[in-house]
Amino acid sequence: MFADPAVWLPFVFAALMGLSILIYVVLDGFDLGVGVLFPFATDAEKDRMVAAIGPFWDANETWLVLAVGLLLVAFPQAHGDILTALYLPVAVMLIGLILRGVAFEFRAKAAARWKKTWNHAFFAGSLMTSLSQGFMLGLYIMGLEWTLPHVAFALMTAVFLTVGYSFIGATWIIHKTDGVLQLAALQWAKGGIWGLVLGIGAISLATPLVSPRIFEKWFSWPEALWLAPLPLASGLIVLWLWSLLRKMPFAGDRRSWLPFALATALWTLAFGGMAYSFYPYVVPNKLTIYEAASSPESLMIILYGTLIVLPTILAYTVLAYTVFRGKATELSYE
């Protein structure tokens, strides 16, 4: 069955799109989270927090452009359906992204008396973006329908995703800073982890209840076996994170990267579960990836390019993170 390009191409593109969304929620997740944590930090700490994400945020955000681009090019039919249904939250997110992106620059370049205002804009933009993305996630799970219970659920996921982002943001700060700020970030992370657990739990409970199809997939034998490792592994990671955060920081700043790595693993598992549940639908319960896909010739053209370019992109992304490895304070003193 997979010999036919009309079958495997949509699958490959769904996988690529999933990959870029995952990379996006981890990477932009941490820098959005840093923005959401802004009010908890002192002015000097704010500067260090921005320094910890400054060289990366633009490239991080590009994964969103790639994800929506792939949706647009590979599944044009679904692209219209999804984005018109999410018209308002998308607009809120875009305005949030605008405020946040420019605040990065303005807070360092405009006259000093405006700096507070831009710090507020940075926080507000990060918050708007996180909340609206969480809202869209919830509405998507609920099948993109604007009914009261669905909106209520989406409001809940909005809060949870925001907490989740600030959690991963806190783990990034643990890795990129030291001293008082690192200790503060450890506290933030300890608070955030419970929001994350609640969020993943709520989504996992709601998803099968909304869709009989997903219920079927989760709770029928032997399919359930496929899924079982996900909650188990997630539970173990949460426990590990919890005990780790209580003991950190270690002497010589050892393993300061570990919480971020574990958080990433947790996201990946949660995301994998979602992807497994929704497959093969791109618009939940309405449109499968096979029905929504562009013509195979066009997908082929993009695939060639992607296969060449994607490894290159990954390589220079790694390069950038290598060039800017180490604690963020160093940025200002060379």
């Binding site: 990366f56 681009g69 992109i313 220079y316 950038a320």
Partner: peptide
């Protein structure tokens, strides 16, 4: 798609 792949990532990463 080619714009995103060949241009946006290049500029965004090396801008840093």
């Amino acid at each position: 798609a080619y714009e995103v792949l060949t241009a946006f990532f290049l500029e965004a990463v090396f801008l840093g």
